[in-house]
Design a protein around this nucleic acid. Sequence first.
RNA 1: CGGGAGAUGUCAGAGUGGUCGAAUGUGCCGGUCUUGAAAACCGGUGAGGGUAAUACCUCCGGGAGUUCGAAUCUCCCUCUCCCGGCCA
Length: 414
Amino acid sequence: MIDLKYLQKNFDEASRKLLKKGVDTQTLENLKELFSNLKEANAKFEETKAEQNKMSKLFGMYMREKKDISELKVQIATKKEEIVELQSRAREANEALERVALSVPNFPDDSVPEGANEDDNIELKKVLEPREFDFRPKEHWELAEINGWIDFERGVKLAKSRFSVLRGESARLERALINFFLDVNRQKGFEEVCVPFINNASMLQGTGQLPKFADDLFKIDGEELYLIPTAEVPLTNLYNDEILTKKELPILLTGYTPCFRKEAGSAGRDTRGMIRQHQFDKVEMVAITTPEQSEEIFEMMVENASDILTQLGLPHRVVQLCDGDLGFSASKTIDLEVWLPGQDKYREISSISNTCDFQARRAKIRYREGKKNLLVHTLNGSALAVGRTLVAIMENYQNEDGSIDIPKVLKKYM
RNA sequence: CGGGAGAUGUCAGAGUGGUCGAAUGUGCCGGUCUUGAAAACCGGUGAGGGUAAUACCUCCGGGAGUUCGAAUCUCCCUCUCCCGGCCA
């Protein structure tokens, strides 16, 4: 959630920033008004409640002193009606505010370039030269068929479309990649954690998936529980509603989880192959930091994800997202795109974001600084998406006969 | 899934209708002492909102109710622990 006090005090600046994230001025005007409504409603309620509290104390005193309480009783009864009314008005004001506020995206960081969509993203650098092929490189699904690596049909049979089955070598490679990623992250100082793959609604709200993106989530029937769309949810919310000490920051976490996404709205995109599945494996990094630390940690996380790709010998490029392409919670995002020779293009394989205090405010994650409790910064990034790495290895390490070599660093994991 | 107990500040644990945001211990922060540390002693220390700062308001798992007044009484829900069943 954005800082509403900031919105109120710097409305023009705030609305200019959020325009880039597709929020119209109308919504922001509305939000500002709802916020001041709430403050007003609260003030009235509190004032009246204070009067009643005083009278109640008096009541007690009169009783003890055996004074006449009949008049006081009438006064209190009148006040009480007023309070009930004011309280429900304050509550409504709060609900009205939350309904809007929880669906307003984060401000882009000042350093983020302007742009309308992904076409305006900025390539910061390329790492490793794509290999020259003396034959037409195949796409991963052709290679999957030749090698018997991916059983798309049976995945669909077991669940539905956009599910698949890895068999034999590919299943082992998937497992090897997970272990490799976790080991690298651990060496960089991330604590490995193993978390529930199902989280409750409150946690999903904490990281920003709810209430706005409910349609993208698999919900457990009859429960307020959801399959996680990313390990970012459980890892970040590990500290939901907690107050940390400054000493324990930064907290660096890494974990492997499958991720579940409905992919509502992406019908027709990447229907072939396993680029876009309802279930995919990912190893995630999450950092909980002070505001001073977050930029440095952010760069470290980008560096780490890029390093993993380099160790695997996968050519990739580092892309800074423009403000128009930023996700809901992100203040700043850098994507890593891996080269897929079969598709003849770069495809996203990691996305690293600093949400600053946006998630911290929702999830109530704070740290103690002297006598004050301040919001932490939260960061997340993939290191890496496992299925897409598998695809990248298949396409980059293919031979003319369709066979696939295994990157050297993975040999000890196979 | 069946039976029993419980949910209070970092934790442990008092509090059973008013002056209780809450004893005490512990932890944490600061200080005295010490070459330094520990021990001992002294002081401070829940969260959110509000204010220039105070006032003031809300919060004792969550919700509804009784009452002038609820941590305390009633109802519902959730969760935890113990016993039994089932089970990796």
